[in-house]
Amino acid sequence: MKHSIARWALGAALLAPAAQVLADPPPLPPYQMRAPAPAGNRLSPGRDGKALFENHCGYCHLAAGMGTNLLVKQRLAAGAGPATALLANRDDLTAAYVHAVVRMGKGAMPPQTRVDATDSELDSVAAYLGRGK
């Protein structure tokens, strides 16, 4: 799974606007299903961060998503591998950083409303993406 995503991300590196200009974008991967929203009250803490990430952030941050595509370019420029354009593969994120970007926006990413992701949901997502730090 991880392997195929990494391979796709390499393709996206070529697709991504960069110094090199491409004649034909590589073929796109198939649609990636998001996890369903986990059960429970959206205002309650402790719901599954991975599922919440996919459900709420997956519009742009799964394979072939807008956020992933734009991040490929940024990751390459930062000397990191293209597979790290998928936020789930990152090991350098902190919960505080995730909070800041989600609420304040970054580049093409607009700030997310509290209907897009509640504060509790954001806590769970931030803990998932910032895990082990």
Binding site: P17, P27, L28, P29, P30, Y31, Q32, Y59, C60, A63, A64, G65, M66, N69, L70, A108
Partner: peptide
């Protein structure tokens, strides 16, 4: 494909155009 409007597959990737 993850992005084919003529087949009704939803994607937000066209927002990249703003770049």
């Amino acid at each position: 494909n993850a992005m084919d409007t003529t087949m009704g597959v939803p994607s937000a990737a066209p927002l990249q155009m703003s770049d």
